[in-house]
């Protein structure tokens, strides 16, 4: 069987397309690379959707945390504290239990016990809390003069937020937010490892790496393959976020741009 056949059979195995049985003997390097790569589909799916949806909740939470009213501030503070203060591992555990009991009462919730939705919800809440903390920190360090200038122009409320506060906040938060994105993609490897069960041997990259390590009894091939995939993913994340960063800072002089990037900001 040539490598092309293997790719045809297994490239989409992680989403249930292609050969139903995983390879069971005579493991080739090609099989390992293909299947682990196929698993990356899930890592990207979880990471991308959680990041995109988490961005909005994070902005709202950061606003709420900065609000004067304790009715808004306290819940946001607690939400951020609980999700930032506990290991993702334990969050997955409790979420799975909660989803199971919800499902027993209301059958509507049954998709929540499968990874594609349940784990996504947990990752979404988790990344929202971390990003909210980053955004909140950035909001506090918005130069006073910027806000005063907006007031002087007669801006207030929504226009002031949309045109002054929000873009400045993003600009300041971006390096740390890049780190958060990297960590989020790494965290997706935990989904099938400790959180949710894998159905029909459809899992993420770590699941397949684990499968091969288990079958070949040699951890020194599949895990480095996994590592290479993740390094590529991390590099793409850094690349894309770098482009956005340049766009956010395009009004600044060249030297100032460089300085902002080098500021050591919060990492997760």
């Amino acid at each position: 069987m040539s490598c092309w056949d293997t790719i045809a059979d297994y490239a989409l195995r992680s989403v249930g397309v292609g050969e139903r049985l995983l390879p069971r003997s005579d493991f080739t390097l090609c099989q390992q690379v293909t299947l682990i790569g196929s698993g990356m589909i899930w890592n990207i799916y979880f990471g991308l959707l959680a990041l995109l949806s988490g961005f909005f909740l994070a902005t709202a939470l950061a606003m709420a945390k900065a609000a004067h009213s304790p009715l808004l501030r306290k819940p946001a503070e607690w939400f951020i504290f609980v999700f930032r203060g506990s290991p993702l591992f334990i969050q997955f555990f409790f979420a799975y239990f909660l989803f199971l009991s919800l499902k027993n009462v209301y059958p509507v919730f049954s998709p929540l016990t499968s990874a594609w939705l349940g784990a996504l919800v947990v990752l979404f809440l988790n990344t929202s809390a971390y990003s909210a903390e980053i955004f909140h920190g950035a909001m506090l360090s918005i130069p006073k003069g910027d806000v005063e200038a907006a007031d002087a122009y007669g801006m207030s409320g929504w226009p002031r937020f949309r045109r002054i506060i929000w873009p400045t906040m993003l600009r300041l938060a971006w390096p740390a937010y890049t780190n958060e994105a990297i960590f989020l993609f790494h965290a997706t490897a935990l989904v099938f490892f400790s959180g949710f069960p894998a159905t029909q041997q459809m899992g993420d990259a770590l699941y397949y790496a684990n499968y091969f390590a288990d079958k070949t009894f040699n951890p020194f091939v599949p895990y480095p393959i996994l590592a290479v995939y993740f390094i590529l993913l991390t590099l793409s994340v850094i690349g894309i976020f770098g482009i956005v960063n340049r766009r956010l800072n395009r009004h600044l002089p060249q030297a100032a741009r460089a300085r902002i990037r080098l500021r050591p900001m919060l990492v997760r």
């Binding site: 993609f185 790494h186 965290a187 490897a189 480095p224 993740f230 390094i231 991390t234 590099l235």
Partner: peptide
């Protein structure tokens, strides 16, 4: 810095200690 930061810690733990 680049390589170690690029890999999820869990993947490291699974083979690094034996190595």
């Amino acid at each position: 810095i680049g390589i170690v930061r690029g890999v999820p810690d869990i993947a490291f733990f699974l083979f690094f200690v034996i190595a």
